[in-house]
Design a binder for these strands. Structure first.
Lengths: 197, 197
DNA sequence: GTCTATACTTCGATAGAC
DNA sequence: GTCTATCGAAGTATAGAC
């Protein structure tokens, strides 16, 4: 994460303990927000001493970046495997509408507000993911006979992303008015596009 | 904020100093994220002693709730004044697409993740605001001749909200691919609807 | 209404023993 | 690789003088 060198020892990246710490940090982040991810609480949640966090990660930011990166890579991998087998607009919508990652995204968006290293990491991933989805969505829309002049794929992508994001955030707050209706609307639209292709 | 009573003194709600503290807290929240909103930093930013924060607010949560509530009321007031004079779909889109509140929303969405008092406050406001916008948007869509059976107003509302939200979050990260194109698309659509009505 | 003083907790991080 | 021990900084909150 950083190029400065210090005399401090650092644990191996493939360590089992290290993975456990990342698991604990991710769980804390999801359950209680990023402010709860402290070396003491991560250690405790993992059943280990907090100093081990500093043995495996130079700083807490390094730990956050690792939590993010691990999930991002996993997500990107899943997406690429789905696309490789050929995928419909409905598949793309379902992948996108997965609520599992919503809280995760909110926390990291907030974190990115004031932690430079994390913002950089998120931006890099967001662009990679964006490009991958755009390519798949463009192909799927073309197959469904949608004129890209009339509905640019990138617009459809942003609408799709925005919809699932806003429903996820509101869902967490307990506000769900119109969600069922909107989901039904999108699924109907997507099904009709599927019939065409 | 709370019904427990303690012996501690509390400053007047209409105090000038209190307003300055809320200003400072809001600025810190926007600039550096909610984790930066501590009694020490708020006091320092306001040029006052941190203990004054505790004189005006029983807990830091009370301060957060006040920051949120003040802005929410102001926002709702502005919206209602706009609607009172009659408003078009374009007006609604512009109001919604105001990026100024994006960071604010992200921070509070993250805060709501783990602070019950704040979540309750946000949910209450979100529902009020949602109802107000829905009413205005429903009327504007009807005036533009949009069939509510074909495009339910609540769906249009969620699309609108989602779009501006996702563009705001990405914009903060420095990811802006497709944003200009999407904004142009929406503005064109909205203008065409305006011509009809 | 604002201050000093202070209690107590938790934080990130490091050094060095085993 | 994991532990004990420890530092200094920062956090929330309260009591009481002025």
């Amino acid at each position: 994460m950083t190029t400065e060198h210090s005399t401090r020892r650092l644990g191996a990246p493939d360590s089992r303990t290290r993975a456990i710490l990342v698991d604990a940090a991710e769980q804390l982040l999801l359950d209680e927000g990023y402010a709860a991810v402290t070396s003491r609480r991560v250690g405790s949640a993992a059943g280990l001493k907090p100093q081990l966090v500093h043995y495996y990660f130079r700083t807490m930011d390094d730990l956050f970046v690792e939590v993010f990166r691990r999930r991002a890579e996993e997500n990107l991998g899943r997406f690429e495997r789905m696309v490789a087998g050929g995928c419909s607009i409905a598949d793309l919508w379902r992948f996108n509408a997965d609520l599992r990652g919503a809280r995760f995204n909110i926390e990291f968006a907030a974190l990115a507000n004031h932690r430079k290293a994390i913002r950089t990491e998120i931006a890099r991933y967001a662009e990679r993911f964006r490009a991958a989805v755009l390519e798949a969505l463009g192909a799927a829309l073309a197959a469904a006979g949608v004129d890209p002049e009339r509905v640019p794929p990138v617009v459809a992508l942003l609408v799709m992303t925005g919809l699932s994001q806003v429903m996820a955030i509101e869902g967490e707050l307990g506000v769900s008015a119109g969600h069922a209706e909107t989901t039904a609307f999108v699924e109907d639209l997507v099904a009709r596009l599927g019939d065409h292709g």
